[in-house]
Design a protein around this nucleic acid. Structure first.
Lengths: 350, 350
DNA sequence: ATCGCTTCCTAGAACGTTCCAAAAAACAAT
DNA sequence: ATTGTTTTTTGGAACGTTCTAGGAAGCGAT
């Protein structure tokens, strides 16, 4: 029967004794080896069931080349975009027979360093890191030097050849600008995101070149940095509207900022989508349910997560470190927050 | 210098050799023992730094009574409420020197069983489980029989004496009803949540007794079950409004449902807070930023998470299993979605 | 019977820590 | 110097697996 006295686990040797075989045989049964006679296998499995045996991975990892544990370090789990990313990654690892563990750093590089240390001590076979803001560029050097496969998500580390997966920020920003230009806007702002953010720099670059290509002056465009939060969106909007020639539409750093911008507009009596066009970035699940539904750059987060997981798995299995990035496709999901005609159905994701 | 050939880790013995001491001494230094002479300690630490030693918890756990790893199993990480809970729990464990790992089950009991098995194999010292919908009542029996400290979050398991932490659902629902009654509402609905949900049953019970205490007929009140999502909120609202005597206000299963209800109202040309009163439950971070800002039952998620972590830690440290529940305090956060006068400042959390 | 060949099973040495018991070193008091 | 006491240090046996090499059983052919 189940049980077993608490605090004294059943081991492989006890199973061996109960089944009348050696511990080696039990080990073979555990890894579903071909070369053990069916009758023996059944006897062992019965003992495993009867004694309530629990496999001890810690002990096993001591002998094996690498564990089956992988880690994902997320810079802000409360952010729905990150949560979706984490879940996408987790799913792929799970499917591949690895055990994924999530840790949150809440944008603290200090905390991140601790978590990385702990993951290493725990013996992770690979790691996906969505780096906290202000992460020093050498934060992962130890890990990489030790040969642990690492893939960065979203945020790059300067001067390091660590593979990275993320959406095509430049193209996304360009698509947003093109849409607004098409709708007749001439004064377009870029709102939100921390000024020191690498991702923001990329989106801003796409924004500016698209503006130039459309014959507009990038230097004249309002760009307001602010925290990538709803509050930040409100602030950025206020900054933008306080200009001499306020913009008539905005590309936002991400959806959360866009929500804030919509909120700020309403507070000023302006209806998003009618008096002012708003486009977000990411296409989080709420975007389609927002009021008004948010026009945004859809990035297929889950797909990005799967891709990151695949990269790590490949590195683990081949033992070789890729340096190849994966820039995910993006597309414009047209909804109501930017005005203009709508597509046939309000779409969601590719 | 850093490095060390990949795939061949530095061990305690090598540190010992480098520092000219025995491995026992290195072990003592690692656990910051008092009884090692400072000069020796420094020598060892220098060797640790120079050789790039990484502690191997797997090996250590083999000898020790229990590991320092704790697990949290969350039924839906994409749900902001759950994410906030997870982060709160994580923080407490971290502060106590334990290593918390998050796993998401996406409401799948099958997945949950796998995850629990993996956590056990990994040798967790304790576990916090926010059970997936449809979890069989015996899902944790093995864990409990083996003496692993477990605390349930939010959802109880029938017929088991496993401690649980969660908000005071009955009181919360009552506070919401009392508010609406105070504002003059007579036909109040309860919207959203799966019909088979234990949490919903509790909230519904509080809703009904409060209604009865206010002299209203609980049996006459509309209660519409639906998925606890924005879409579910929209559906539940439609059901409610289709009644012969439609309600004039609603207590919602949670904030997400409430957001859906607000959305549905707008689509019908009704302004939440003016034509129809909406009260949510949980007070997720978005509630205060929603449009209109959501009146809701604030539950202090982070506090709940901390409390859950404390319980597990106590069980780990004392080796005894509590069976004591913790029902967290709740209070009404009055904002605009229910109409009526506002407090001085739009508040957030206790 | 003995020999080869499979097929199935096993002893025992790892793996990197912790911890007990006891040795060695350091110091203080004679 | 010797002794006693306290402070430091150490050998070596665990812990629960995996894995290599080889042993035992079974079986058909000589």
């Amino acid at each position: 029967m189940a049980a077993g006295s608490p605090r004294n686990r059943v081991t492989i040797v006890e199973i061996a004794a109960a089944a009348g075989v050696s511990k080696s045989t039990v080990s073979l049964v555990l890894k579903a080896s071909e070369s053990v006679r069916p009758s023996t296998r059944d006897r062992v499995n019965a003992a495993i069931r009867d004694l309530g045996y629990v496999y001890n991975r810690g002990a096993a990892n001591l002998r094996r080349a690498h564990s089956n544990m992988v880690g994902m370090i997320i810079h802000d789990l409360i952010n729905p975009f990150c949560a979706e990313l984490a879940v996408g990654i987790e799913r792929s690892f799970q499917a591949a027979g690895y055990v994924p563990f999530i840790a949150n750093t809440a944008e603290s590089p200090v905390r991140q360093a601790e978590v990385i240390k702990l993951m290493r001590e725990q013996g992770v076979a690979g790691l996906i890191v969505s780096a906290a803001r202000g992460t020093p560029d050498d934060a992962l050097d130890g890990l990489v030097a030790a040969g642990v496969p690492v893939v960065l998500a979203m945020r790059r580390l300067k001067g390091r050849r660590i593979p990275m997966v993320g959406p095509d920020s430049r193209l996304g920003a360009r698509l947003a600008v093109e849409r607004l230009v098409e709708l007749g806007h001439r004064r377009i702002a870029f709102l939100g995101g921390y000024a020191d953010s690498v991702v923001r720099a990329e989106r801003l670059e796409g924004f500016r070149t698209a503006l130039a290509d459309a014959g507009l002056d990038p230097a004249a465009a309002v760009t307001a940095a602010a925290a990538p939060t709803r509050d930040g969106g409100v602030q950025a909007l206020e900054m933008a509207l306080a200009q001499r020639h306020p913009p008539t539409g905005a590309v936002c750093f991400n959806d959360i900022v866009a929500f804030g911008v919509c909120l700020g507009l309403r507070r000023k009596g302006i209806e998003p989508g009618r008096g002012f066009a708003v486009i977000g970035f990411d296409d989080v699940q709420e975007a389609v349910h927002a009021d008004p539904p948010l026009t945004t750059i859809a990035v297929d987060v889950m797909g990005l997560g799967e891709r990151a997981a695949q990269s790590v798995l490949r590195m683990i299995e081949t033992g070789r470190n890729t340096t190849e990035d994966h820039i995910g496709a993006v597309h414009l999901a047209v909804r109501e927050s930017c005005g203009g005609p709508l597509p046939d159905r309000t779409e969601r994701r590719a």
